[in-house]
C-alpha cells in the first residue's frame, strides 16, 4: 500500500530530512511513526502526502509511483489519503456538518450524495448531535473527531494523522485513538505520527521509530521503549 524505496530528502537549505530509507506498510495496517521533532517523521509524512518530493528514491502508494505524478494530478492523489493534524485545521466559519460536506464538495459530490454520506460519518465519529455547531463551540476532542470525519468521508483507503492527540488531554487522546483503531478495523490503512509513549506502548501496534533521518526501529506489536536497531 505504501512503499518507500531508497528514499532520501535533502532540503534546499542543505538540511537532510531523510537519509536513504526503505519502508513498506501493507494494506489495512495500523502504524505508529515515532521520533522526536526533527527526527524525520514529518518528512516521511510530507513525502506520503506529496507535499514535498524526495531527492532520491521511489514512493509507491496504492500501486502508483507518486514521485512521477504531475502537479495537476496531485489533488486527485490527495483524495486517496485522508489527513488529520494536531491543530485540527477546521474551517472556523463552517459548521461541523459543512466542514465534512466541504471535503465532498471539493471532489464534486452531488448534494444528494453529501446529504446521505455526512450523517453516516457523523454517527461513526459520534458527533451526530453536534452537526450544527461551529468549531469554536466544540471541545478539542470533538474538533479532532470532526477532522477525522472529514478525512474519511471520501472513503480514502489511507488515513495519515500527524500528532492527532498532541493538543488533547489523556482521556480524550484515548478516545481519538480508539476511533482511529475503529476506522482501521474497517480496512483503512492508518499511519499515526506521535511521540506519546503511553499510547504507543498500550496500543501494541507496529512502531517505526525515526532518529536523525533514519529508521532506527521497526517492530510489530511493539512499544516505544523496546530497544532494537533497525538495519
Amino acid at each position: 500500500m505504501i512503499e518507500l524505496t531508497g528514499v532520501s530528502k535533502t532540503y534546499s537549505n542543505g538540511a537532510v530530512g531523510l537519509h536513504s530509507t526503505s519502508l513498506y506498510i501493507d494494506k489495512g495496517e495500523f502504524v505508529f511513526l515515532t521520533g522526536n521533532s526533527g527526527s524525520g517523521k514529518s518528512t516521511i509524512l510530507r513525502l506520503i502526502l506529496k507535499e514535498i518530493s524526495p531527492s532520491h528514491g521511489r514512493i509507491n502508494v496504492n500501486n502508483k509511483d507518486i514521485t512521477k505524478i504531475s502537479r495537476s494530478k496531485i489533488p486527485y492523489y490527495r483524495r486517496e489519503v485522508g489527513v488529520v493534524f494536531q491543530d485540527f485545521r477546521l474551517l472556523q466559519n463552517k459548521t461541523v456538518y459543512d466542514n465534512i460536506a466541504f471535503a465532498m464538495q471539493v471532489i464534486g459530490s452531488s448534494k444528494k450524495e453529501i446529504m446521505k454520506r455526512v450523517p453516516t460519518v457523523l454517527n461513526l465519529v459520534g458527533l451526530a448531535k453536534k452537526s450544527k455547531c461551529y468549531p469554536n463551540e466544540l471541545s478539542g476532542g470533538e474538533q479532532q473527531r470532526t477532522a477525522i470525519a472529514r478525512a474519511i468521508v471520501n472513503n480514502s483507503p489511507i488515513l495519515v494523522a500527524d500528532e492527532p492527540t498532541g493538543n488533547l488531554d489523556p482521556t480524550t487522546a484515548w478516545d481519538i485513538m480508539s476511533l482511529l483503531k475503529d476506522i482501521n478495523s474497517r480496512g483503512v490503512t492508518v499511519v499515526v505520527a506521535t511521540h506519546e509513549k503511553d499510547i504507543v506502548n498500550e496500543m501494541q501496534k507496529r512502531v517505526i521509530e525515526v532518529l536523525d533521518g533514519r529508521i532506527v526501529k521497526d517492530k510489530y506489536s511493539g512499544g516505544y521503549s523496546i530497544e532494537r536497531t533497525y538495519n
Partner: peptide
C-alpha cells in the same frame, strides 16, 4: 459505514 475506494472518482472537469 463502508470505507472502500469506490467513491474516488477522478473528476477532470468541474461539474
Amino acid at each position: 459505514v463502508e470505507l472502500s475506494r469506490t467513491n474516488i472518482v477522478e473528476v477532470t472537469a468541474l461539474k
